[in-house]
Design a protein around this nucleic acid. Structure first.
Lengths: 144, 144
DNA sequence: CCGAATCCAATCTGATACTG
DNA sequence: CAGTATCAGATTGGATTCGG
C-alpha cells in the first residue's frame, strides 16, 4: 500500500502540471487503481446529480424521483445503493405505514461535494467554449 | 486531520450546500444540460488518464500508447479525437516520413486540470475509507 | 411507498486485420 | 507511425412487472 492512508497532507492543490506528474503513476499502475474506481462511480449517469440534490437537504425516495423525474425507478434505486455502498450517502428507514426511506449525504459525501462543485463550476464556465469547439470540429470534419 | 486539508483554499470555495442548490436546477432542466455533457466526456474510461499524462508534457501517439499500455489503439484514437473535439487537447501533425503526430493540452485543457486534480486528490485521500465502506456493505448484504 | 427482477435496446470497449 | 474498419463481447440504461 502507499502512504496515503496516513493522510500526509498532499500539501495542497499543486500547480496542475506537477500534480499530474504525481498521479500519473498511480493511474497507470495496473495492480489497483483507486482513482479509476472512484471516477467510475461518480462518472455514471446519475451519481453526481443525486449527490447534488441530496446536498441541498435529505430527500425521501419518492421526492428524489419527482425532483429528477427523468430517471427510472431502477436507476434511482441502483445508484442510491451504490452511493450508499461507498459511504457517500446514508439510508434511514422510517417505520411508518407504509414505510418511508430517507437519504442524506454523509460526512464523506459532503467532503466530495467540494471538489465536485469545482468541477461543475468549471463545466458551467466553459460550456460555451466547448460547444463552439465542437461545432468547429464537426464542421471541419463533415463540411458537406 | 482528515477532511481539513484545504490548506490553500482560495476563499471562493462555496459552502457545498449552497453551491449545490445553485447547479441543481441546471442539472435537472432537461432541455440542455451542459454539465452532464462535460461530466459524460471526462467520465469515460480513458479521458482523465490521457489528460493527466498529457498534462505532464506533450506526447506522440505511440508514446501515449506505450505509457498507458493497457489501452487499445482504437480507444486511444477515439478518446484523443473526442478530447480534441472539445478543445481540451491539440493535435499537431509533424511532416516527417513517416509522419508523426503530437498531442498536447490546450489552455482550456490546462484549466480543467486544476479542478480535476482536486477531485483526484479527494479520491486518493479517501480511497481507504471508501474501500472499507464497501467491504462493510458487502458483508452486511451477503453475509453468506 | 420502496425496491427487486426480468427482458431488451443502446452504448462502450477490445481484438484483429487493413490502409496511407 | 498513425489511423480506420469491422465484428464480438461486456456494460449500461430503460420499460415493465411483481413483492413486501
Amino acid at each position: 500500500m502507499k502512504g496515503t492512508t496516513s493522510a500526509t497532507a498532499p500539501s495542497d492543490v499543486p500547480a496542475p502540471a506537477e500534480g499530474v506528474r504525481a498521479w500519473k503513476e498511480k493511474f497507470v499502475s495496473i495492480e489497483y487503481c483507486p482513482i479509476r474506481t472512484v471516477i467510475n462511480q461518480i462518472g455514471d449517469k446519475w451519481s453526481v446529480l443525486i449527490l447534488a440534490v441530496l446536498g441541498t437537504r435529505p430527500h425521501r425516495f419518492g421526492e428524489l424521483r419527482r425532483e429528477i423525474d427523468d430517471i427510472s425507478q431502477r436507476m434511482l434505486t441502483q445508484t442510491l445503493r451504490d452511493l450508499q455502498r461507498d459511504g457517500l450517502i446514508a439510508r434511514r428507514v422510517i417505520p411508518t405505514v407504509p414505510p418511508s426511506v430517507e437519504y442524506s449525504v454523509t460526512a464523506l459525501g459532503q467532503s466530495l461535494l467540494e471538489p465536485m462543485s469545482r468541477l461543475i463550476g468549471w463545466a458551467e464556465q466553459h460550456q460555451a467554449e466547448i460547444k463552439r469547439s465542437r461545432q468547429r470540429f464537426d464542421a471541419s470534419v463533415a463540411p458537406d
